[in-house]
Each structure stands twice: as C-alpha cells, then as structure tokens.
C-alpha cells in the first residue's frame, strides 16, 4: 500500500484532536492495514497497590515510570488463545526497542485473573514466555484488580472474552493511546516515539 493510502488509513484509525501529534507509521516494509483501532484519550494511572512477579508491592503509578513512555497490556496466564499472540507482539516490541536502543520505554502487563495469577504464577509465565527482566508483570490481587481495570476502562466481562488492548503514553502527560486489537510490534513502537515531553 503506498504512503498516501497508508496515511489515510492511519487517519481513519486514529481519532486525533486537532492539536495532537500525528503518528507517522514509518516502516521499511509495505504498511498493511492491521485489524486494530487506535485513539488518544485522557487517562491517569491509579495508584492502587499491585504486586510484581518478583514479589514487590507498591502503588501501580509508583511502580511505573513517570516520564518515560509506557506500554501497558493485559493478560491471564490460563489463556490459550489471543494472549499468546499479544505476548509474542510484546516480545517483538522488546526486540525492536533493543535494536533501537530505546531503553527508556517500559512494558508492563497486568493480570485480569487475580484468583489464579498469583505473583509466583506470573513469574512462571513470564519465564516461560522469555520476557526480558525489564518487562513488568503485575497483579492487583483479588480486591485491587477490579478498581484498577475500571480506572483503565478495561471492559468488564468474562475473562476469556476480551479484545487485546494496549495503552501507550507517558503517565505524567495524563494521555494514552488506546490500541484495541492485534497490532504489529512496529506500530506499538512507533506510538512510543514522538510523545511530547511532560510539562515541568
């Protein structure tokens, strides 16, 4: 697909307010229309307590970078379907970031199944997938998960019945790009570029 069509496709998918940054998808390969939608929204991270796969407990906001770009995703370790794909996408993102020396970008995954996804279970899953050390795996526990997911506007419903969702942004900015559906790793990485710095 040529660049004009590509830019049109991006404009259709990105619901951009007039003053916002337009994210160019600069790929080496042909840009194809992927099965995702993306839009920018106001969102502040809550500070409900979470525990990481390494057993560290802190408020979610405190656990995550303040200024640096964040890619937030969701999973449950009992998943046998799309979670494997979203995790593979994030592994691809890790590789791309490493190649680009973009070591300030943080990837974090939140469990939507606190009953089964204990910190130990998350550690096992993280190791099985081969996630890098810097990729945070977090659980809000049985009482903290719902408030966190509600604040992040993760749709309610059965654990097995969700679209993949990624939230990308600098937490200090109070704005995130919400990607719904499966995204090419390069698309996710390009959303982390050109994010405006937060005002002091």
């Amino acid at each position: 697909m040529n660049r004009i069509a590509s830019a049109l496709a991006a404009a259709v998918f990105l619901a951009l307010p007039a003053t916002a940054q337009h994210h160019e998808h600069a790929h080496d390969h042909d840009h194809r229309m992927t099965d995702m939608t993306a839009g920018i929204e106001r969102l502040s991270l809550p500070n409900f307590p979470v525990t990481s796969s390494e057993g560290v407990t802190a408020g979610l906001r405190d656990m995550l970078p303040h200024d640096a770009p964040l890619i937030l995703s969701f999973t449950y370790t009992g998943c046998e379907s799309l979670c494997a794909v979203t995790n593979a996408i994030l592994l691809g993102v890790e590789d791309d970031l490493l190649r680009a020396n973009a070591d300030e970008v943080v990837i974090a995954t939140i469990s939507i199944d606190p009953a089964n996804d204990t910190p130990e279970q998350l550690r096992t899953a993280k190791a099985q997938i081969g996630a890098g050390e810097g990729w945070l795996w977090l659980t809000g526990g049985t009482s903290g998960t719902k408030p966190i997911l509600d604040t992040l506007r993760f749709p309610p419903g059965a654990i097995e019945d969700h679209d993949p969702i990624f939230l990308i942004g600098r937490p200090c900015s109070g704005r995130f790009t919400r990607v719904v559906g499966l995204a090419d790793p390069q698309d996710l990485v390009s959303f982390t570029r050109d994010l405006p710095e937060c005002e002091a």
Binding site: H29, T34, A84, V85, A88, I89, L91, G92, P185
Partner: peptide, 8 residues
C-alpha cells in the same frame, strides 16, 4: 509466524 516476522 505472525506479522510477517514475529516467530512463535
């Protein structure tokens, strides 16, 4: 293979 290059 997903997305033309992501291997699983």
């Amino acid at each position: 293979v997903l997305f033309g290059g992501l291997r699983m």
